[in-house]
Structure formats: C-alpha cells, structure tokens
Design a protein around this nucleic acid. Sequence first.
DNA 1: AAGGATATGAAACATATGTTTCATATCCGC
DNA 2: GCGGATATGAAACATATGTTTCATATCCTT
Lengths: 278, 278
Amino acid sequence: MHSLVQRIRDTYAGLPVGERKLAELILEMQGDFAAYSATELASRAGVSKATGARLVRRLGYADFHEMREQARNRFQSGSPLAELSGTQGLEGTLAHHLGHDIACLTRTVETIPAERAQAAVNILAGAQRVTVVGFRNSYPLAFYARELLVHVRPQVNLLPVSGQTASEELSDLGPTDAILAFGFRRRPPVLGRILRIAAAAKTPTVLLGDSSLGEIGKAANVVFHCFSRGARLFDSYVAAMSLVNYLGSGVALALGTSAHERLRRIESLHEEFSDLEP
Amino acid sequence: MHSLVQRIRDTYAGLPVGERKLAELILEMQGDFAAYSATELASRAGVSKATGARLVRRLGYADFHEMREQARNRFQSGSPLAELSGTQGLEGTLAHHLGHDIACLTRTVETIPAERAQAAVNILAGAQRVTVVGFRNSYPLAFYARELLVHVRPQVNLLPVSGQTASEELSDLGPTDAILAFGFRRRPPVLGRILRIAAAAKTPTVLLGDSSLGEIGKAANVVFHCFSRGARLFDSYVAAMSLVNYLGSGVALALGTSAHERLRRIESLHEEFSDLEP
DNA sequence: AAGGATATGAAACATATGTTTCATATCCGC
DNA sequence: GCGGATATGAAACATATGTTTCATATCCTT
C-alpha cells in the first residue's frame, strides 16, 4: 500500500501539465487536502474536475474518496508500526534513518504518563520566572524550548548566556521560579551542579534527558527520558523536540487568556515592524 | 468570531443529547473533523444528518461549509495566534501529537530522492567554508546543524551572529563556499536577500524550508521541503531535525578520514579538558 | 392527564460533488 | 502534412451531501 506522496513521486515524471499542477498543490498542502473537495482542489490548481479525477485514477486510487480516506488514516492510525513497515530501507538510507527516528519518538511517548506531562506543564505555567538550561548538544533544544515558551508566557530566560557564567543568573533562584533543563549525554558537569543548586533553592525543575541521566535526574521534580539512538553517527533529538513542542502548547493551554493576550501582542508588534514574511 | 471550541463550550450545557454526542466527537477529533463530511460525522456520532445540521445552526454557523471553512483557515495562517482562534482548544493527547509528528517525518522523507540528499551532502562536504543561516524559529535548527557539521569538518559558521549584521559574514562569499539555510515560515525577509546574494556570488546553497518557500527556494541549488504541520499550537520541526542529522552524518561519510581525524582530535581535547560527563 | 415545548430521525428536496463522455486541441512520429 | 495518441475542459450524468419539512416521541409544567 503506497502512500500518496510516494505515488506522486513515482509518477511525477510522466504526469501531464494539468495533473502535475494539481499534484504539486496536494503535496504542498501536507495532507490538508483531505479537508477540501476534489472540486475545490481542482479549482485551486486551475484545472478541471475531469483532470482531477484523472489524476486520482492515474495514482492508482479507485476514486477520490479512497485517496482522502488514506490521508485521513495517516493521522488516525496512531500506529507507528504501520509507518515503520514501509520504512525498512537499507542501512545508510534516509528510510532507514527515518525508521530509527520513528522508533525513538514512539518509545519515548509510550513511557510518558499523561500526569507527568501535566505536572511539567503546571510547573512551567505556574512559575514566576522560567530558566531554560541546555549546554552543548542540548543547547538547540533549550533554545527551541525558550523560543516556544516566550511566545506564551513572560520571563523565560536561557542559560548559558554568552559571555557570562551561570552564577549571575542563578543567584536569586527561589521556590517561585522554575527550571527547564536538558541533559543529554556528553553534557558538561555544570548541569548537574545547576540542578543541585535548584533543588537546594527549592526551585521546581523539569528535566529532559536520555538514558545517561543516572543520579542527576534525582534532583529534578519531573524527568522525561527520551530515546535518542540515531541510525548513524549522531544521536537523534526528534523525540525531545516533539516533547518540547507538546509541553509548550500545554503551557499555553494552562495559561489560557494570558497566553492568548500575549500572542496577540506579539502578533501586533510583528505587524508594526513588518518583520515577517507570510 | 468565536472558535468552534468556544462555541461548543458556551452552548454545551444546553445541548440536547444527540447534539451533545456529535459535539463531543468533533472536540475529540481536534480539527480533523474538517476532513470528513457532515454525513460521516453524524453517522460516527450515532445521530441523524438532521441533528448534525441542527447543531451547526445552534453553534451559530450558517451551514456546515462555514464551519469547515473556519477549521481549514487555521491551517493556512502562520501565526500561533491563529491556532488559538481556530477550532481546537489545544487539548489533545500526546498520542495524537505523536501521530502528527510521525506523519511529518514520513511524508517529508518520502519526497526526498536519494540523489538530492547526496547532492546536498556533496555541497556541504566539498566547500571550503560553510555558513549556516537561520533566523527566529529556524535558528535552533541552524544552530543544531552547525553543531553537527563542526564535529566533522572545519570552518562552519553560524548566522546570525549576536551583535553583528550579516554583511560582515557575507562580504567575501564565493563559489568555493557553501550556504546551508533554514527558511521556515514566518521568517524575516533578510533570508531571501541572503539567498540572492549567495546566488549572485555563485555560492552553492542548500535550503531547508516548508511549503511557504515559494520564490525564495529558486535561489538555492538544493531545496528540501519539510512537512511541518503540528497537532497543536506550534509547528513541528521533527522532520527538519531528522534531515539535518542525516545530512550531517552524510557529510562525515563523504569526508571519510578527515572527519574521523577531526572527531578524534575533538575527543582528545574533551579528555584533556575533562569537560564532559559520560 | 392534558397541553405545549422540544428533540429526533425519516423522508423530501435542493444542491454540490464526483465520474464519465464527448468534442476539440495539442503533441509527436513518420 | 497527415494520422494516431494524448491531454483537456465542458457538459452530461450519477451519486452523495446537506438542508428543510413533517410525523412522532419525549419531556416538562400546570
């Protein structure tokens, strides 16, 4: 059972102009095409309904309904095995790499009880200030987390700060603050020290890391173990990335109106500065 | 203009049994209801089409098409604010979130021919200097990419540099250099200018972005479109993250001995500094 | 218990969607 | 240039969808 993307890719070279336009639109829509009728899609691509129907048949579907059904099931199935079964590429291929990442994602999510995620969200939503901490390979994750959080809440700081030591930032840590820390392997020892300082200051701490955490995880209130085994040279951080995204939006949900207002102000400023493309 | 979720919440207490069942199903589906017909939804909820139409009217929509349209429109707008004002209330399980991330990963990988990945690897491995470029939401990805590349090759720079403008870094760009750029939506316009400058300087460019790329993708030599539709408030970057990882390890492979030597030297220095935990 | 209000689904109806047919244009090979 | 193959969209047609109407059941108040 080939996916729609695969089918488009396999037939793209032989597609006539009109059908190609429609195929490109569908790819661009990232599965959202399922929320549109075949008539609307054809119109948007600037081709006729008949051309649309022909593309559907050329791609091997009985009809548009079957094609839409397949797209809908992509999100619903929730069964990573279904995705994995099509991804068994040779060692070294992108497909093989994908298989590892899916496995990391799936295994990580399976280990997380809803209450733990909610506890993390509550800590991050309830604190007066949040300090996000990540060194070295954890730094992109920490940066990303800070980026998301600052969209929905005030006073989110990032550590390390270039040109500074951590002491300045941590000197007034207290129980009304929170720490969101990333502790993936090959981390500098300073992370463990920061976590102990936070524990001593009774600062609630959320920690994302991998199987290397060991003792340092004990200093944190909420700990997430992310699977990070990569297919090749480097570790995989897709699970951590995904979890950060989930927690970030969870914080927005927990904060409700204040997050809403903040997003609105940010948007308004973007417009005033005209600093973003669509 | 109230969101669908808000409307359901406002009227929930007064909803008759049948309409309530349908409303609950719609909430549960998290905006995915837009990929289904009103007839299918009613059937799934175990109520009649007529009851479905009545709920639509009770919620204040002229008809089902208007309701679906509102759901679809949130897909198009790039702002997190639009996510909040859309159909979903940000609720949803980690499993649902996972489903979206897996779909993004899978769909992205499916669109990438092996030759394109190899072309990108060749550019990044063959250049004298690599400049990695990413602004705002693309910055964590750019940072990560730079981090990986600098493990396996020399002279990898990151843009933006705090406190500087891009001009200094780009002033001596030439055909022996390479650019690795990240252009996800809601990017500042400077990215497009950088890509045009690189093209004018005949600097080979690899670009990762999403469906918002449009014209700016034309300035790059190798373009990857990553699917980035998130399940909740924020876009998903797991596909981009995964691809960066793959390309980074591909560069190591392409460089062979020099990459191994470099990794060895880095490791030796880590040991000398005793700056990493296991 | 009676009456009024409300809910519900089947059926009728209106409209939209999706598929197929047909006429015509375009492309390609000889 | 001619003929055959292919592409395309308008139109015809079949079917599905969505809305409204109507008959009946249920609930609530007096």
